[in-house]
Design a protein around this nucleic acid. Structure first.
Length: 811
RNA sequence: GCCGCGGUGGCGGAACUGGUAGACGCGCUGGACUUAAAAUCCAGUUGUAGCAAUACAGUGCGGGUUCGAUCCCCGCCCGCGGCACCA
């Protein structure tokens, strides 16, 4: 048992004094930027699951440095957000105070693990020198028309008392507190992410090193669909009902039109509607439903006919009924659909319930019977469709869209599921939105040289409950002069959401103290983009979409040199509690990494977390399993504390050393840390076995040093200590990754596998370059194999060089 | 419902491009050391039968392709993650 506490403390101190983790800016070397998703410094500190990704990137960073790269590997704090604010409300402590305290705890926990961050580049999103630039970016967006004021109904969390973006919901519940979210019309600032939808989608193809699963999630979230917008005339009126559909080809089966209850058109139609009371009652009822109730797929569809209103199908001039129903969403497309019950499940269900006509206009390609109890929703061949009869769905769509455009009845249209980003929060602990409202001039941006607009100190952090931020009550803050006319004006009091600061932080690490720009363009050119980004998959459709959006915008205004921020992306699999539940205070299954470091050592924790299983997979924590990692390090330490060299080296173990160097290097590159650790364990087991039998080391010290070098990214403290004990004066991390000899990793002999009819019957040690003839000869002369061949006719012989022989006999 | 990922000993998992299934680790069993325990070391550990050599079965289930399938194809079952009345 080695003294991990003293060794780890000793080297952490020396590394800090010698600034060993300071980023080198030597431009002659290739750069490598490896980044963790920075944490929110919560009040509960880190549990043992958080550092898994940090350990992996640290191993990778150290490996890259040993391979002569300039490595940028920084860390910082995503520190705005609700928990600090709620804590402030409860305890009347300024959120900054609580945040600073939490950061100190996090930092201490991270440092205990020997992570090689360059702390001189630490950033904090709540630092005015940082959020100055978050505000600056917002202003640029405002100037380009990408930030706009809107009064549309948005998601409102009655418990957090703030508006939320679509991305902040989980199954219709507030992602933070789990409260059912309401729809509330209110003034808000919105970012036009939909302008970038196409690029966000298409450029995913430029990211071959992103995991497919995450790209898929983004694609689904963006939700592009191609179709047509069709205008239906309203009988005896000038205005029209526009609908969006991806299936124009089914339009001859359209038997009615449906509007969402919130559709603005309805109030225009009032004079025509004969059953006003019934309609208004339905709209009122729909309004009072939560989103959750409305989108419950199991519920019955409901709706009301607009008596006195008829729409006209432009393709056949047929007059059809108009309904309102809450199965149509106002926020997607035009808030109205053409209903084709025969070919759409939802319309089918609705038509069945209200006994509406179901008219078939598509038949299946292979003429198989279409089930009458179900909508036929696939593509097929048109029928009952005038001169489109006989066309395939695809052909019909093209022709019909052409006709729509020629005749002015509609056009080709692309719709997205992604919505513009609701960007204002009615809370205190966020970046103030740098705008001023002037009675004369309207909305006026704060001049850039007046940034940052600092968060004022307040006494009460409670949300006002009126839909205004607590800042609205701070008169000193609110009342200002209009930058344009100099007259009395009021500041915008909404703040930015937590995702704001994290949209561009990776750029700031490159140049963290710059007062002139968010990042120096030359420095950015060298260090950007992030070569490797590691973090939780839960950010796939939030942070990772937002950050790509902002980055593309910054590229467009020429603030950065590259169009995509992250070249390679890898997600971390969670570490869950020993009981199989997510680690949380609530279940009492939280394990603090400090306790593990105290008892077993930080190096053991590092090795264990990498050894637990495949990096991207979630695994249960198991303190017993950690013992294995510790035993491994103990073995290393005890072997290296007492090396007796001998004249000759053991060839097999020397070869194994070089194979291990190769494997560990390749495994680090592919993030297969579990097998890298396993390979090192195998090597050490061989070393120890040999020594136990022969009482001297199978390898010379110079060769043994190579093993310590490949171990060093995983167990930096112990490796550094052993390196010193082997009389090295410079840090092991200033050395280089050992090169393996391709000659030494070649085996002279192999175990030839001999199969008879595909079943293993013998393994014979033979020379690796054995010929086919020789291989068959040795095999058929083998006693055991012989017994299987006796009296049988050989049909076929298969030979795989360096591997196996398979003899096929007639049964 | 749709999209993605996965299912291998008591447990975490390994297996190149279709070529010895179960590496490595935990746990367990037996032994050595010890007054004893812990630690450490040695041996064993997929199942069935057998003292053993060995034989047969075996990677969620059912089929298929192949000399040979954890890996490829077809049809299912189960688990996890994401999206979900998106027209």
């Amino acid at each position: 048992m080695y003294d991990h506490l003293n060794i780890e403390k000793k080297w952490q101190k020396i590394w800090e004094e010698k600034k060993i983790n300071k980023t080198s800016e030597d431009k002659n070397k290739p750069k490598y930027y490896i980044l963790d998703m920075f944490p929110y410094p919560s009040g509960t500190g880190l549990h043992v699951g958080h550092p898994k990704g940090y350990i992996a990137t640290d191993i990778f960073a150290r490996y890259k440095r040993l391979n002569n790269f300039n490595v940028l590997h920084p860390m910082g704090w995503d520190a705005f957000g609700l928990p600090a604010e709620n804590y402030a409300i409860k305890n009347k402590v300024h959120p900054q105070e609580a945040t600073d305290k939490n950061i100190a705890i996090f930092k201490e926990q991270l440092n205990r693990l020997g992570l090689s961050y360059d702390w001189e580049r630490e950033i904090n999103t709540t630092d005015p020198n940082y959020y100055k630039w978050t505000q600056w970016i917002f202003l640029q967006m405002y100037k380009k028309g990408l930030a706009y004021e809107s009064y549309e109904p948005i998601n409102w969390c009655p418990s957090c008392q703030t508006g939320l973006a679509n991305e902040d919901l989980e199954n219709g519940l507030c992602e933070r507190c789990g409260t059912v979210v309401e729809q509330k019309p209110m003034r808000q600032w919105v970012l036009k992410i939909t302008d970038y939808a196409d690029r966000l989608l298409n450029d995913l193809d430029k990211l071959p090193d992103w995991e497919e699963s995450i790209k898929e999630m983004q694609k689904n979230w963006i939700g592009r669909s191609e179709g047509a917008e069709i205008k239906f005339k309203i009988k005896n009126r000038e205005d029209k009902i526009s609908v969006f559909t991806t299936r124009v080809d089914t339009i001859f089966g359209c038997t009615y039109v449906v509007l969402a209850p919130e559709n603005k058109l309805i109030s225009n139609l009032k004079s025509n509607i004969k059953n006003k009371e019934e309609v208004e009652e339905y709209i009122e009822k729909a309004k009072n439903k939560t989103d959750l109730q409305r989108t419950d797929l199991n519920k019955d569809k409901s709706g009301v006919k607009l008596n006195g209103v008829k729409a006209i199908n432009p393709f056949n001039n047929e007059e059809i009924e108009v309904y309102i129903a809450d199965y149509v969403l106002n926020s997607y497309g035009t808030g109205a659909v053409m209903a084709v019950p025969a070919h759409d499940e939802r319309d089918f269900e609705f038509a069945k319930k209200y006994n509406l006509e179901i008219r078939k206009s598509i038949t299946s390609i292979n003429n198989s019977e279409v089930n009458a109890d179900k909508a036929f929703t696939e593509d097929g061949i048109l029928l009952n469709s005038d001169n489109y009869n006989g066309l395939s769905s695809k052909e019909a769509r093209e022709k019909m869209i052409d006709w729509l455009e020629e005749s002015g009845h509609g056009e080709k249209k692309i719709n997205y599921k992604i919505k513009d980003w609701v960007f204002s929060r009615q809370r205190y602990w966020g970046e103030p939105i740098p705008l001023v409202h002037c009675k004369k001039c309207g909305v006026v941006p704060v001049p850039e040289k007046e940034l940052p607009v600092k968060l004022p100190n307040v006494k009460n952090y409670e949300p006002s409950g009126t839909g205004e931020s607590p800042l609205a009550k701070i008169e000193d803050f609110v009342n200002t002069k209009c930058p344009k006319c100099g007259g009395d004006a009021k500041r915008e009091t909404n703040t930015m959401p937590q995702w704001g600061g994290s949209c561009w932080y990776y750029l700031r690490y490159i140049d963290p103290k710059n007062n002139e720009a968010l990042v120096d363009k030359q420095k950015e050119k060298y260090w950007s983009p992030v070569d490797f980004y590691v973090g939780g998959a839960e950010h796939a459709t939030r942070h990772l979409i937002y950050a790509r959006f902002w980055h593309k915008f910054l590229f467009d205004i020429k603030a950065v040199n590259y169009e995509e921020p992250f070249i390679k992306l890898q997600h971390v699999g969670l570490i869950i509690g020993e009981d199989g539940r997510k680690m949380s205070k609530r279940w009492g299954n939280v394990i603090n990494p400090n306790d593990i470091s105290d008892k077993h050592g930080a190096d053991s924790l590092r090795v264990y977390e990498m050894f637990m299983g495949p990096f991207s997979q979630s695994v249960s924590w198991n303190t017993k399993g950690l013992i294995g990692a510790r035993k491994f390090l103990d073995k290393v330490e005890s072997f290296f504390s007492d090396i007796k060299e001998d004249e000759k080296e053991d060839e097999k173990i020397l070869s194994l050393l070089h194979k291990t160097i190769k494997k560990v290097g390749e495994d680090i590159e592919s993030f297969s840390f579990n097998t890298a650790v396993s390979a090192m364990m195998i090597f050490v087991n061989e070393l120890v076995d040999f020594k136990n039998k022969n009482h001297f080391s199978p390898l010379k010290v110079d060769n043994l040093k190579m093993f310590i070098q490949i171990l060093s990214p995983f167990a930096p403290h112990l490796s550094e200590e052993l390196w010193e004990r082997m009389n090295e004066k410079e840090s092991i991390f200033k050395s280089s990754w050992p090169e393996y000899s391709s000659l030494l990793i070649q085996d002279k002999n192999i175990n030839l596998v001999v199969q008879v009819n595909g079943k293993l019957r013998a393994t014979i040690e033979v020379s690796a370059d054995i010929s086919e003839e020789e291989a068959f000869e040795v095999s058929s002369n083998n006693e055991k194999v012989k017994s299987y061949l006796e009296g049988k006719e050989i049909i076929k012989k298969i030979f795989v060089p360096k591997k196996l022989v398979n003899i096929v006999v007639k049964q």
